[in-house]
């Protein structure tokens, strides 16, 4: 596959995946660390944070579409109100910003929930010991919380990696991969080639490459995360 179009879509896909991983994972860990540990706050936080995960994906796209429209949506109205020239249907930069914001909105909670549950399963004894040793909160995070969370974090990372490669419904409903081709990710391109132009041969080849890219990335990540334990 030497076609430029495929390379472009792949490049966009990788950039998108990298961006959302860089935003969602630290944000998710940060929120999980700062969430209340007991009392009514836990319930409120958990229930509210889980809400975006539960909305079917086609609805997510449709609601963000309206939510971000400059003339009738809250987000578009607000951003224009503070002086940005915001228009996600025409400006590629804002289209990107919207798709990334939508994904962060949709999936950061997944990282939060996993990390929070992982954090809660650290026995209190660890914290008490570290307190006696006079560890700073950074040291507690680096040497106790992070290693204990590693498993959960691996799952969260891999899940986000795979799902971000599969992202189709949301950007498609949002603005059909446009303006132009600026938010056409791999899966959207694939469907365009396969069903739009009915080039089934190239589309099949693309999907095989696509699958191997995901497989390779996951394998590398998995091996890296698990390396310490096998040694």
């Amino acid at each position: 596959m030497r076609s430029e179009r495929f390379h472009d879509a792949l490049g966009r896909q990788l950039l998108f995946t990298l961006l959302i991983l860089l935003i969602e994972v630290p944000l998710g860990v940060g929120i999980a660390l700062t969430m209340p540990r007991q009392g009514i706050g836990v319930t409120i936080c958990l229930v509210l944070m889980a809400l975006p995960l539960l909305i079917p994906w086609n609805v997510v796209g449709a609601m963000w579409n309206i939510f971000a429209l400059p003339d009738i949506g809250l987000l578009g109205k607000m951003l224009n109100g503070v002086g940005f020239d915001y228009n996600f249907t025409q400006n590629p930069f804002w289209a990107w910003a919207t798709v990334v914001a939508m994904d962060v909105w949709h999936w950061t909670s997944l990282v939060v929930l996993l990390c929070y549950a992982g954090l809660r399963s650290i026995p209190d004894a660890y914290y008490q010991t570290s307190k006696i040793d006079g560890a700073t909160s950074w040291q507690v995070f680096r040497y106790i919380q992070l290693p204990k969370m590693k498993r959960v974090l691996t799952i969260a990372l891999l899940l986000r990696l795979m799902d971000s490669f599969m992202i189709y419904t949301e950007p498609f409903v949002l603005n059909g991969g446009g303006p132009g081709n600026s938010t056409t990710f791999l899966s959207i391109d694939l469907v365009k080639v396969a069903l739009g132009q009915f080039d089934l041969g190239p589309a099949a080849a693309m999907s095989i490459i696509y699958f191997f890219v995901v497989l390779l990335l996951c394998w590398v990540l998995y091996t890296l995360m698990m390396r310490d334990e096998t040694n």
Binding site: L48, P52, I55, M63, F67, L74, W105, S109
Partner: peptide, 13 residues
């Protein structure tokens, strides 16, 4: 802040 960010689109819905 995060929850407020989450709630805005849901409020819109």
């Amino acid at each position: 802040v995060y929850i407020v960010f989450l709630m805005m689109p849901i409020y819109w819905l």
